[in-house]
Design a binder for these strands. Structure first.
Lengths: 208, 208
DNA sequence: CGTATTACGCTACGGCTCGTAGCGAAAGCG
DNA sequence: CGCTTTCGCTACGAGCCGTAGCGTAATACG
């Protein structure tokens, strides 16, 4: 999180409950107010803490929202559904469900927008959110290779690049569908996406 | 744009030059300040107009930035490069170049974030930005079908769905790569993406 | 148990931005 | 030349920001 505990052994410790209350209040405020109308004073009163307490832990709105949103991504899992196609559909559905929540929608896009002029914030997003999701792609890919559905990749650099590519294609498509195009990830879109991702545009005319 | 000219024939007409100056000043302020620190008073003084003039034309920051960003997408074109793969790479490169500009990065993501709680803004984005880009997918797809690279699709509904799917996959991947993952669309990524999009994950191991 | 140290809640403050109102001047239209 | 609308300017109350200062609460240490 935000707390750096390098050398502070003595004194009153920071309340962990306050941390949780503040992050929950931030998500609640994101749902009701959105990013631009969210004020730190409002978050503080929702959480039942003083505004100064909030400023002691986070530098500003950006950092606070990144942490509040990052917690949401801990819920993502990748159960083994038996095939690559089923695994892809599973993770897409989970990600789409996550992005259907207003706190994720407005929070995620807002901090990404802010990160364009803030290198530290971009790094914070990369560590807290991006890398946290990539592990799903890693395990799914490893499973598919173990099943023989995907060829093994001996070169670790090439493997990392491929994982990044797949991650951007899957997460990017879902994000763009739900947030930019503003349409739901229904079953029809889900199957179409999986078919194109696995078989490609050329070979996937109208499907099986 | 924002101007509704249903019935106003008499009186002093609005300055078209002021419109252009305001939108240009908005993009300039987006580059230097980003979304959150951009103030309408600053935009007004950059554009050389009074703040009140700005408020007479746009309801607020959101609507202004949507219009300012939408103009950027007019630059996108789709020259015929002879093959589907080349056309895809061409449009991806153009889109990536657009997203490398700070005014597009911060502006686009910010208004998308704001649109999660604002239905009117979402519709404005859909009309001004999303549909404006889909035409590229339409023409590219029609070209590929004419070349025989893609099978024809007689059902117009199914064709529209496919265009939407491809659009979300292409634009989404580029957006996610550049803004969320925060890495450049270099030649290696470009070729990998095109290969997976056209041939699929399964058939595209490490191929040519 | 007492003391040092840190976190906490509260209040108050200057500074900035917002969005609007009111005014006189300017610019087209008939 | 009048009518109408836009324009630039100034001013205003309201709200939020981020910080300072203070007294109090909670823990670690001796």
């Amino acid at each position: 999180m935000q707390s750096r505990t390098p050398a502070s052994r003595t004194g009153r410790p920071r309340s962990a409950a306050a941390d949780a209350a503040i992050l929950a209040a931030t998500r609640e405020a994101l749902v009701e107010l959105g990013w631009s109308k969210l004020t730190l004073g409002d978050v503080a009163s929702r959480a039942g803490v003083a505004k100064t307490t909030l400023y002691r832990r986070w530098a500003g709105k950006n950092e606070l929202v990144v942490d509040a949103v990052a917690e949401l991504f801990d819920e993502l899992e990748l159960p083994d559904r038996g095939s690559l196609a089923a695994d892809v559909e599973g993770v897409v559905l989970q990600f789409a469900a996550l992005l259907s929540r207003p706190e994720a929608r407005s929070g995620l896009m807002a901090v990404v927008a802010e990160s364009t002029l803030d290198e530290a914030l971009r790094e914070r997003i990369r560590v807290s959110i991006v890398e946290r999701q990539k592990r799903l792609v890693h395990t799914g890919r490893a499973r598919a290779q173990h099943r023989g559905e995907l060829p093994p990749e001996p070169d670790p650099d090439e493997a990392a690049r491929t994982v990044g590519l797949i991650f951007d294609m899957v997460a990017g498509a879902v994000v763009h569908r739900t947030l930019v195009s503003g349409q739901p990830v229904d079953e029809e879109w889900l199957h179409g996406f999986t078919r194109v991702l696995l078989s490609g545009l050329v070979t996937a005319g109208t499907g099986p």
